[in-house]
Amino acid sequence: MNKYKKITLDGIIFNNPTFMLVLGTCPTLGLISSALPALEMGLAVIVILTLSNMIISALRKLIPNEVRIPCYIVVIATLVTLIRMVLDKFLPDVYEALGNLLALIVVNCIILGRAEAFANKHTVLESAVDGIANGIGFTMALTVMGIICEFIGSGSLFGFKIMDFSVGMFSTPAGAFIVFGLSICAFTAIIDAFQRARRVKANRLARENMLDDGAQAEEVKA
């Protein structure tokens, strides 16, 4: 079980695709001007990433190494086309809000990256967990930045107006770049502090253990 916990934590936090690996930047910058499309995009990516990870993992023994990248691209492109059809049919508002960025999921490096780095070496179940975790990591990053940009840029949250004051720049790419950059900065700083605290704790435990061992050894000697 520990294995799945590690995959999940890696995907969401320690190897967060948006903040730590800085992948999939184009849809991120294009959509974080408001929170709702960002969240919708995130959900679409979760679905596609999970399915593509599962399919590619299932086919990993079948696909020859030489043509693996074209095969992955075909699978991903098919999934993207499918989700576009489904959204167009059942959720036309979402389809319109995401526009061309939906088609560009094909070249989103997160999906191809996870296929190449994880799915072709692991079982279907592990790949599915990895896909969901990375998708959630991406979605969270997008939504958080979307909330920040929308709040400062148009004084609203998920489309509901809450204050009159706004700095219009934050709903343009210029604001998106600044928020993205500073978010990466904040995220790495927090993770770093957390890691250091964990390491300090681990060291202290180790030292105590060593002392205990030493004491025991003394006792044994005595």
Partner: peptide, 23 residues
């Protein structure tokens, strides 16, 4: 290589055509 790639393309194409007809 050719066989696998072609069959994947074919399966995907057929799948999409079916879905397109439905959706």
């Amino acid at each position: 290589c050719i066989a696998v790639l072609l069959s994947i393309v074919l399966i995907c194409g057929i799948l999409l055509t079916l879905c397109n007809a439905l959706l």
